[in-house]
């Protein structure tokens, strides 16, 4: 039953004594963790969106001077893209219960993610060494805050990744980690998506 259909239901009428009346509505068959993750990502999405709105408004003011582009960011984007692909591959492997592939996949995804984080920190250093300090221009401030927040978001994901990978490496059954692998992959796709938006924003303005 769809959400809209169900809110037109007249609950005061006699519905028969079928206790399964109405049954499931929204989120049918979804594990609660899947719903919670999607809600959480929606919240994170709102946070980034508000930053981006603030970015556009602040950009219009006089003292804004755009930062130069760093080529390193292209490399980082590639790294994060690879992470996302590996995660998807691992998820498929988990569905097919391929324990060995899940192991390799999780470790590789983690390694590429760490490489991405390292790359981002290097980009910060590069900018800082070139004299683009955090407080010297609002464009710089937004660059550091947006990339920093995205980095924090990644670290949050890595925490969950650590727990699942630890389970995988200590020989847990694939069945036991299937859900966390799936959730990790959703999280990583979201990370990539957010990064692409931020990167586009930083590059084209």
């Amino acid at each position: 039953m769809s959400f809209f259909k169900s809110i037109f239901e007249k609950p005061w009428n006699y519905q028969g004594d079928d206790p399964n009346y109405g049954g499931l509505e929204i989120g049918e068959g979804l594990h609660p963790k899947r719903i919670a993750l999607r809600m959480f990502l929606a919240v994170v999405f709102v946070i980034f969106m508000l930053f981006i709105v603030a970015y556009f408004i602040r950009m219009e003011l006089e003292d804004w001077s755009p930062m130069p582009e760093s080529n390193l960011l292209w490399v980082n984007t590639l790294l994060l893209f690879i992470c996302s692909v590996i995660m998807q591959w691992t998820r498929a492997a988990a569905r097919k219960s391929l324990a060995q592939s899940v192991k390799y996949g999780m470790v590789a995804a983690g390694a590429f993610t760490l490489a991405f984080v390292y790359g981002q920190v290097s980009a910060w250093e590069e900018m800082n060494n070139a004299g683009y300090y955090l407080a010297s221009n609002p464009a710089n401030s937004f660059f550091y805050v947006l990339t920093g927040l995205h980095g924090l978001h990644i670290l949050g994901g890595l925490w969950v990744w650590t727990r699942s990978t630890f389970k995988v490496l200590s020989g847990a059954e694939v069945k036991a980690v299937k859900l966390s692998v799936e959730l990790c992959s959703v999280y990583w796709h979201f990370l990539l998506l957010v990064w692409l938006v931020i990167f586009a924003l930083l590059s084209y303005t």
Binding site: S6, I7, L30, I35, A36
Partner: peptide, 24 residues
């Protein structure tokens, strides 16, 4: 609040007992 909130929303969506439709 976010930790609590994710819980409330998911609980309402997923943990209703038999026969407890949204409009009940």
């Amino acid at each position: 609040f976010t930790m609590g909130g994710l819980n409330y929303v998911t609980t309402v969506l997923q943990a209703r007992t038999r026969g407890m439709t949204l409009m009940r």
